[in-house]
Every structure is written in structure tokens, then in C-alpha cells.
Design a protein around this nucleic acid. Sequence first.
DNA 1: GCAGAACATGCCCTTGACGTTATATAACGA
DNA 2: TCGTTATATAACGTCAAGGGCATGTTCTGC
Lengths: 106, 106
Amino acid sequence: MAVTFEALAHPVRQDILAELRARPRTVNELVDSLRISQPLASKHLRVLRDAGFVVAVPEAQKRRYALRPEAFAEVAQWLEPYRWMWEDRLDLLGAQLDEMKEEDEP
Amino acid sequence: MAVTFEALAHPVRQDILAELRARPRTVNELVDSLRISQPLASKHLRVLRDAGFVVAVPEAQKRRYALRPEAFAEVAQWLEPYRWMWEDRLDLLGAQLDEMKEEDEP
DNA sequence: GCAGAACATGCCCTTGACGTTATATAACGA
DNA sequence: TCGTTATATAACGTCAAGGGCATGTTCTGC
């Protein structure tokens, strides 16, 4: 079930995803806003597409790229088994109170 | 605020984190359970340590590695702006996905 | 059909990750 | 102190990601 974090590892790809968060974009829009070369944008988009984080919607001779929620849900799902850690830590100040009253365990 | 996903990208490191989820381990325990070489374990642990995902607690001549919740909280925080996407989708597509949540084998 | 726009891909080079073996470092026990 | 245990680092070869430039490919409108 190895989540593909490699696609998220590159800063340019993180920037692309952040851009697409607002709304879908064409390649050239990303090229302009991120100030990268067009081939580089296409290559990073390919990585993101192969990893399932984006989809390309053909639109005339352009291709509008959009986020694919399922991929992000998988990341969240991967993260889920670790969630108790920092949530418990937030309750750390009340750790002593935990002894007095019994709560349900995760 | 670029989250360091590179550390999470490698399958061996994902395995290490999964092991540490149960309880802290020494290097040799990880070597045995993951069936990797000792230098390799040390190197991957170094990457995870530099990225903040684990800490080494000296214990006699051993070093017990433990997860560091803050790093995972940062990942969750990075993911937060994307959360609305699949949560909205769950409302639209249905709650069936909510029940078959732990079914995924690529 | 043709020209141009919008992307994708191929090729080349550089750099760095990964894994292995060998060796260094540090702490413990006798 | 000496040997052993436990871990870290060094040195080295391999291989693929990343970025550049150049070239395909596909669609559109004239």
C-alpha cells in the first residue's frame, strides 16, 4: 500500500498542486505563474498524473489540469494511523486528568 | 513551508515508520524485522532523523528510535488545504466509501 | 492543406540517492 | 585493558531524477 510520496517530494510539484487548489489550470498558466520552462512543467505534470494527483481535461488545443481528490484522500488515509500521536500530545497538559476519569481509547 | 516528503518517499523508510508506530526500536531490531543491512538501516534512519520524523534516544550502547509527532502533524497540516476536496466528494458520492475504508491493495 | 498555438517527448548532461562492503566510533562487560 | 556489541560513517559503483534545448504531435482556424 506504499503511498507515492515521491510525486509530492519536489517543490515545483508542490507549487503546482497549490496552484491547482484554487482552480484548474492549463500548462501555460502554470508556466507563467511558476516561472518555469514549458517542458519542465509538462514533465512534472506527467509525474503528478502518473501518481494520480492530477488529471488532464482536454479543452480545445489546451489541456486543463485539475486535482484528483482520491489521491489526496489516500495520503490522508496513510497518515491516519499516526494521527493519535499528535492529537494525544495536544491533550498532554491534561494528561494527569486522564488518570482521574476514564475515557474511551482510540 | 515546503514539507519534506522526500523522507517519506522511500518504501524502506515507510516501513521503518510503520514499525516505530507500535513502539520504539533499536537499529538492530529494525534490521531484523525489515531484513535489511545494518548500514542501510542507519542511513535511512539518518534521513528520517534529519527530516524530523524520528528521534534517537541513547540507551546504553544502543539507540532507541521513536517517532516524533510534530513532523506528522506538519504533514497533516500540509494536507489540510486539500481536505475539503474529498470530504465534499464523500457527501456527494455517498457514504459507502466511508465503510469500506480499509480496503486497498494495489 | 497550412501555419501556428499548446503540449508532449527525446536526448544529453550533471548530480545525487541507494545499496554494498569495509572501517571507525562508542559503550559495556570481564 | 581488551574484546565484544551496537551503531555510524567512508568509499565506491550504479542508476535514475532533474533540468536544459530541440523536436514531435495534436488541434484550430484561415
